[in-house]
Simulated scan of single mutants.
Amino acid sequence: MRLAIFGATGRAGRVVVEHALQRGHEVSALTRDPARIRPHAQLRVVGGDVRDPAAAARTLEGADAIVSTLGGRRRDPDVCAEGIRTVLAAAAGKGPRRLVILSNYGVADSRHRTAYVAVSWLIERAVLRDKEQMEALVRASDTDWTMVRAPVLTDGPRTGRYRTGTELRLSFTARVSRADIAEFMLTELRDNAYLRRAVAITS
């Protein structure tokens, strides 16, 4: 499969790119700093910003599916919503329809009245608001999307031992490794088990 990956040099994105190449996928990765990605025979690196329509379109050329691991920062609090708006516009029409996107547990309909969610919003309000706006844009699109709502991410190894579900309730102890996130996102591209649904994940 030919994948267009956005957020490719983030902490989760780098792992997704690595696992995608290990699985034999062809990858087109967008980054503002191409030097941060190691060359690979099946990797095409596109330099640019995800909010640039031309850069997004170049990344999508020839792709069968889109993977987004865009992550917000306090100094750039709207990058997820603005970035996915650009990607969706570039993909409209002849672009790939399949989209698997990394989000956060605690946004939209997973914003349950629990201590975990309340503290998350207290600490990361701008980031979560950005993710919530991103999810709304994805839901309104005509893509075949899956949103993966993650808790705290760790740098642990791939274990293959994680739980997923649309009704999964996460607590303060919820964790999952970036390697397991990568495995699940890439598997979901193949299996379509959560097509047009948002799914929580935890180890």
Rank of each mutant, 00 (worst) to 15 (best):
L128K: 08
D76I: 11
W121I: 06
S171C: 02
L99W: 14
G48V: 06
L60K: 02
L30C: 03
E167I: 02
A57R: 13
L122G: 06
A20S: 02
C80Q: 15
I37W: 06
A200D: 14
R44G: 05
G156Y: 09
A29V: 06
A179C: 12
A41N: 09
E188P: 01
I5G: 04
V87F: 04
R113Q: 15
M147L: 14
R175I: 09
D64A: 15
Q133T: 07
I101A: 13
E82C: 05
S103H: 02
R190S: 12
R169W: 09
A55S: 13
A136V: 00
R175C: 03
M147R: 03
T173G: 13
V119W: 13
R98Q: 08
T166Y: 10
Q133I: 04
Q42A: 15
A4S: 02
Y162H: 09
L43C: 07
L168V: 03
H112M: 06
R23V: 05
G165M: 13
L128T: 00
M1Y: 01
T59Q: 04
T164N: 08
V67F: 06
T159A: 02
Q42R: 15
A54M: 13
A198D: 07
T159Q: 10
D155G: 01
D144R: 11
G62D: 10
D142A: 09
A150R: 05
S177A: 10
T69L: 03
D76N: 15
R11D: 14
V17Y: 09
T164S: 10
I181F: 11
I5K: 00
V15W: 10
I5M: 01
Q22M: 15
R129E: 15
G24K: 05
D191W: 01
A91V: 10
R97P: 10
A92D: 14
G13W: 03
T143M: 03
H25I: 11
W121M: 03
D144I: 08
A81S: 15
L70Q: 04
A150Y: 10
P77D: 13
H40A: 14
V152G: 04
A193V: 11
E61I: 11
S177M: 08
L70K: 07
T164P: 00
R125E: 12
D49L: 04
L195I: 12
A126T: 12
A91W: 06
G165P: 02
V16M: 08
L88F: 00
D142H: 04
T86R: 00
C80F: 07
E124N: 12
L137I: 02
G106Y: 00
M185N: 09
V50N: 03
W145A: 06
